Computed example of a mutant assay.
Amino acid sequence: MTFSFNVYIPLNFVVGQSITIQLKGQNSKATNLGTDNYNTLLGYSNYAVKQNDLGKTIRASFSIGTNGNYQSFDTALADTASITIRQSSNISGFVYSKIKLEKGSVATPYSPAPEDILN
């Protein structure tokens, strides 16, 4: 599974610092949503900002893994009660858009993939 998004990098951001993003899916049995004990899906991205990123919107993507209790992404997703996406740092000024979670290991354009179309 791939998680992708656009993010605007403010002009005043420090080159070399990272934008840290987390996606966490938790199952319906989770009693404490703040812990990692009930994860069904989990992924982190640490993107180091380059000089030519400042003042621009960039596209980023990363892979989402499943908890070891699930044999496939489909079974993990079926057991996922909530998905949280958060910036894991307290740096402000980023603007996120065009967020997409899709099957496969490669992010695709925003037209539906064949498996996304219901007959």
Rank of each mutant, 00 (worst) to 15 (best):
Q22M: 11
D36Q: 05
Q17M: 04
Y38E: 14
S61M: 09
F73P: 02
I83A: 08
E115D: 09
F5D: 02
N12P: 06
Q26L: 14
M1N: 03
I9P: 06
I99M: 04
T57F: 06
E115A: 15
K29M: 07
V7Y: 00
K100G: 00
S97E: 10
T80C: 12
V106S: 11
S18H: 05
P114G: 03
L42N: 10
N27P: 04
S89K: 15
F5V: 01
A81G: 08
S28I: 09
Q26R: 08
T80A: 10
A81M: 02
S89T: 15
N119I: 07
S18K: 13
N119M: 08
I21A: 02
V95W: 03
I85H: 08
N69W: 01
I99F: 03
L11T: 12
I85N: 05
T35F: 03
S92F: 06
K98W: 06
I64V: 15
I21E: 08
L42Q: 07
T40P: 06
V106Q: 13
N67G: 11
N46I: 11
L33K: 08
L23D: 04
D79Y: 00
M1C: 06
K56V: 07
T84M: 12
V14L: 11
G43K: 02
N67S: 15
K50T: 12
N6P: 02
A48Y: 15
D79G: 06
L77N: 13
K29Q: 10
Y110K: 02
F62P: 06
S82A: 13
T80S: 10
A60S: 11
S82E: 14
G104E: 07
G65K: 11
K50L: 13
K103V: 08
N69G: 05
R59L: 11
S28R: 14
N39T: 04
F62K: 04
N69T: 09
P112G: 02
T84H: 06
Q26P: 01
D74P: 00
T35W: 00
A76Q: 07
L11K: 15
G25K: 09
I58G: 02
N46F: 13
S18V: 05
F73E: 10
I85R: 01
K103T: 14
L118N: 07
T31K: 13
E102M: 12
T31F: 00
A107T: 11
I58F: 08
F73W: 02
I58E: 03
D79L: 02
Q17A: 01
N90Y: 10
T84R: 13
T31G: 11
N39S: 07
T84K: 12
L11Y: 15
F94Y: 10
I91L: 11
G104I: 08
